[in-house]
Design a protein around this nucleic acid. Structure first.
Lengths: 239, 239
DNA sequence: CAGCGTCTGTGCGCCCGCGTACAGACCTCG
DNA sequence: CGAGGTCTGTACGCGGGCGCACAGACGCTG
């Protein structure tokens, strides 16, 4: 057996779907990887309430989360999405004790978890990790800013199309399960509004949905229906 | 003359009103301070267009800036304010080449400027500076998130009150010059809307305004009129 | 002090999204 | 197969903010 194969198959150093972890050399970051535990995250799990201490950070490895800024009335408004391309706990990386947002598991799946304490300790002496996470923070910040514009300026139908595209990118499939009620919470609108917008997209043959399961039929059509915010945010990620 | 006096009066090491600069030890950061130049920034100057390279970073020393996320229609929407407590160029500190926002001088005054190149070089080898700026980035991110909620959820009158309070904090005076047209641009609403909201605040004796000059008469009253977003954002700064 | 540009006050019709409410469709489980 | 829960479709009136437009007030400048 070739030594390289051994490395790849080694259970304690699995190749990670998470882009941040995948980019780290396992050899040079042994103590970092030692702090990681795999966890399964069910739909609806709340990883962190807004303005409370972050106990852990997470590197999604097949699941997906929403970042919700809280308004007076419960529920909150989505200001960011995290999938395999990012992490939960950017604020910890920036040295803050508390998270500004509530983190909600929106797509069940597995993630790698690390205690905030271990994470801080590792970060302190790893300049290249710092740089990676700074980049991550930049993306989160710029995304929140763009979503602020989007929520204010654009019609619901365009925002829904944007949200479906962003979700699809992060779950990596053209099907996913969300009720209209849930989407309404994320976008901060009424369910009746989502119904109307989704109905319009379905009538145009862009999506199909029924009782909680959504399917993207025409991704290009959705791109055309979405506002430019989608493109602006997507380009942040691949830079 | 006491040697300490000499240091304080030394023109090349003036005490800075900017909180970030004030917190840096001049002795330990000689090469950092060497890269600073004082500049006078007139009202309306654009320091950076959205999605273009940042050539300089700025440490306001008596002036104040707006961070504007751009929408299709010109103008843009304010997603942050920067005064003496912060800096312009957080995205540079996070390792990004371009700024996600347009930066507009909203209150004329002086600032310390540094080339982005010099700044990056200094930052690379100064861990304590990195920490300070990470904190700054956290505040900018959390602020943008809260403003996203605010723009979507709250009535114009409350948002105007919040904006007046935030502005007052940063200019450090109860009087400032802004036309209703300008405020409308910042809040992303019609001038007529600002007129109505400002009229209501004036009738209640909270502010006074006329032809571009605003005065805060009753700060506590404004606090009551503003949404809770003001408090949420203010608490970010003093942590 | 006359004239002009800027800033402010106000009116009108429009429309998106809100709050609420209810009925029908579908699924699950007893 | 019937009952109950969940999800979806749709209706109705309300209201904030929009776009537009115009008149009045103010102040600078010649």
């Amino acid at each position: 057996m070739h030594p390289k194969d051994t490395l790849i198959r080694n259970a304690s150093n699995p190749p990670h779907a998470n882009r941040i972890l995948a980019a780290l050399s396992p050899k040079a970051n042994r103590s970092f990887f030692a702090g990681l535990t795999r966890v399964e995250l069910p739909l609806g799990r709340v990883l962190c309430e807004a303005r409370t201490a972050s106990r852990h950070v997470y590197f999604p490895d097949g699941c997906m989360m929403s970042l919700l800024a809280m308004a007076e009335r419960g529920g909150g408004l989505e200001v960011g999405l995290v999938g395999c391309e990012g992490m939960v706990g950017v604020s910890v990386a920036l040295g803050a004790a508390t998270s500004p947002v509530k983190v909600l598991v929106q797509g069940a799946g597995s993630a790698m978890r690390m205690s905030a304490t271990h994470f801080r300790r590792e970060l302190e002496r790893n300049r290249s990790l710092q740089r990676t996470l700074d980049r991550c923070a930049y993306v989160a910040m710029a995304t929140a800013m763009q979503i602020a514009v989007c929520n204010k300026e654009h019609l619901l139908e365009a925002r829904l199309a944007r949200w479906l595209l962003m979700t699809q990118d992060r779950v990596g499939s053209d099907r996913f399960r969300f009720t209209q009620q849930f989407i309404a919470l994320m976008l901060g609108v009424r369910r009746a509004g989502v119904n109307a917008a989704a109905g319009a997209l379905q009538r145009r043959g862009l999506i199909r949905y029924s009782r909680g399961s959504m399917q993207v039929l025409d991704r290009n059509g959705l791109l055309a229906a979405a506002c430019s915010c989608y493109e602006v945010i997507r380009q942040l990620d691949d830079a």
